[in-house]
């Protein structure tokens, strides 16, 4: 099955597109953040897959007294290390995003983007009228 040979890449694409879709289509801010998170997870998978070598094992140095029966193949550790950093960044992004959502909820009493926008517009109109009254 040629089609499924690159199953990990398919997983990456599906995850990214799903996340992207959620970000665009959902008005709920929490869902947006989750979408972003899923989107980023897709990229993490991509990096993890990048470093994988067929039949490779974790890059841990095997000491000499242990028996070496065959040549050891290691997976490339660098992408994994890189992605650890990116995961941390992703977590931080999510934390900032969620913190913002909490503040938004406190101020607006809603986390639906269209409702917030409606509130803003209403206020702007009121504000404008207020200016005109003077």
């Amino acid at each position: 099955m040629e089609f499924f040979a690159l199953y990990n890449d398919w997983a990456v694409i599906v995850l990214m597109m799903a996340g992207f879709y959620i970000m665009i289509a959902r008005h709920n801010l929490v869902k947006k953040i989750l979408g972003l998170s899923i989107f980023q997870t897709g990229i993490f998978y991509f990096y993890v897959g990048l470093g994988k070598v067929d039949g490779g094992t974790a890059p841990i140095f095997i000491e000499e007294n242990e028996k070496l029966t065959e040549a050891v193949i290691y997976s490339n550790p660098l992408p994994h290390v890189l992605i650890l950093t990116a995961i941390v960044v992703g977590v931080a992004t999510m934390a900032v995003g969620l913190a913002l959502i909490v503040r938004i909820y406190e101020k607006y009493g809603s986390i639906e983007e269209d409702e917030i926008q409606a509130i803003d517009e209403q206020e702007q109109i009121n504000d404008h009228n207020g200016h005109a009254d003077h």
Binding site: L36, L100, K107, D120
Partner: peptide, 20 residues
């Protein structure tokens, strides 16, 4: 400015997508 919160949030989404 509570609008700042939403502005920051939108920037966060766009910026993170760009960075990703």
């Amino acid at each position: 400015r509570k609008q700042a919160l939403l502005a920051a949030f939108r920037y966060l989404i766009m910026g993170s997508v760009g960075a990703s």
